[in-house]
């Protein structure tokens, strides 16, 4: 059976343009601009991309941002740090959501 995610897919990403060229162009301009160096460095933006890719569990973006990180000399040691920062924040967010339960219990519990 064909896999839903294939590492060859990334090369065809641009084919999505044909279904709605106008919105595609707007999005790709926005994406390009948002990732340009500004107050944040290229390195910082690549690491943001990597963290978001992990959070969103997007294999394409994980691949793409790993390659971009390698191309500026970052290694798995760097990416592991980024991964742990991402994962620990996710864990914190999970715990923060337990506040909802905590609040409900405060209100309705005895």
């Amino acid at each position: 059976m064909a896999a839903y995610f294939d590492d060859e897919d990334l090369a065809h990403f641009g084919e999505l343009e044909k279904h709605h060229p106008e919105l595609w162009a707007l999005w790709s301009k926005y994406y390009g601009k948002a990732f340009e160096e500004g107050l944040l460095t290229k390195r910082e933006k690549i690491l943001i991309g990597f963290a978001v890719a992990l959070c969103e569990k997007c294999p394409y973006c994980i691949h793409s941002y790993t390659a971009q990180a390698q191309s500026i000399g970052l290694t798995m040691e760097h990416l592991a740090e980024a991964g742990h920062a991402t994962a620990s924040l996710r864990a914190g967010i999970t715990m923060a959501h337990a506040l909802v339960a905590h609040n409900i219990d405060k209100k309705t519990g005895m």
């Binding site: 290229k42 390195r43 500026i72």
Partner: peptide
């Protein structure tokens, strides 16, 4: 150290 290239010599130098 691997099968890729460096895209930004200036950035690498700073690192």
């Amino acid at each position: 150290v691997g099968a890729f290239t460096i895209s930004d010599q200036g950035l690498m130098e700073a690192e």
